[in-house]
């Protein structure tokens, strides 16, 4: 009887262990996935082909944008997160094209495509020795704002190439659930 119990317990333990192995084993997508270069807000994160430094993050309810000479205001059901990033190329000219905002729960938001005509957004071409600033604009849920991670890579399929992973740190929420420092309207017509 004792022996049977011991066997059952052993089998259960083995099953749990196997489950752990199955879950924690890296899959193909991870094996050939991008190689992260970690950093914090304000750090210069050095990848293979480019360097990125997220200077500041701003939140707003509306964005003011110049469109063919007309001023337009974009609203959102969530919140606009605008990250100003300084890019530099390492050894050769390159283009940084892809960025996403990964919230604390793992939801990832690509850059918005609503403002594709505006200046200073990705993709941005960078040359060695000539750093350049750009804005990364995301439309996110307010609860995905704090402790988010910014993911930046040169191209979409950056298999085994660098991806900057910049942790943006905690953001204090105001009474309305939006970040405390949220402005009503951010003026993107101003130079970066």
């Amino acid at each position: 009887m004792m022996r049977k119990m011991a066997n059952v317990i052993l089998l259960l333990l083995a099953t749990a262990l196997c489950y752990g192995l199955q879950v924690s084993k890296p899959h193909y997508a991870e094996l050939i996935g991008p190689i992260p270069a970690y950093g914090k807000l304000g750090d210069a994160v050095v990848g293979r082909g480019f360097e990125a430094r997220a200077a500041k993050v701003a939140f707003s309810r509306n964005l003011k944008v110049d469109r063919y000479g007309q001023t337009k205001v974009f609203t959102t059901g969530g919140i606009w997160a605008v990250v100003t990033v300084e890019f530099a190329a390492s050894a050769q000219s390159t283009t940084v094209a892809v960025a996403s905002w990964r919230g604390p729960t793992g939801l990832a938001y690509d850059q918005t495509e609503r403002l594709s005509f505006a200046d200073g957004l990705l993709p941005v071409a960078i040359d060695p020795g000539l750093p350049k600033k750009a804005r990364l604009i995301f439309e996110v849920r307010p609860d995905e704002v704090s402790n988010a991670t910014l993911l930046i890579s040169e191209k979409l399929m950056s298999a085994l190439d660098s991806q900057a992973e910049i942790s943006l740190g905690p953001v204090a929420a105001g009474a309305d659930g939006l970040p405390a420092e949220t402005v009503d309207t951010l003026d993107l017509t101003q130079p970066i």
């Binding site: 050894a91 050769q92 000219s93 071409a125 040359d127 060695p128």
Partner: peptide
């Protein structure tokens, strides 16, 4: 077409 400097850095044509 590119420019290469003494350090081996390479510049591609610009659209700026």
């Amino acid at each position: 077409v590119m420019l290469i400097d003494a350090e081996g850095r390479r510049w591609s044509p610009t659209s700026a």
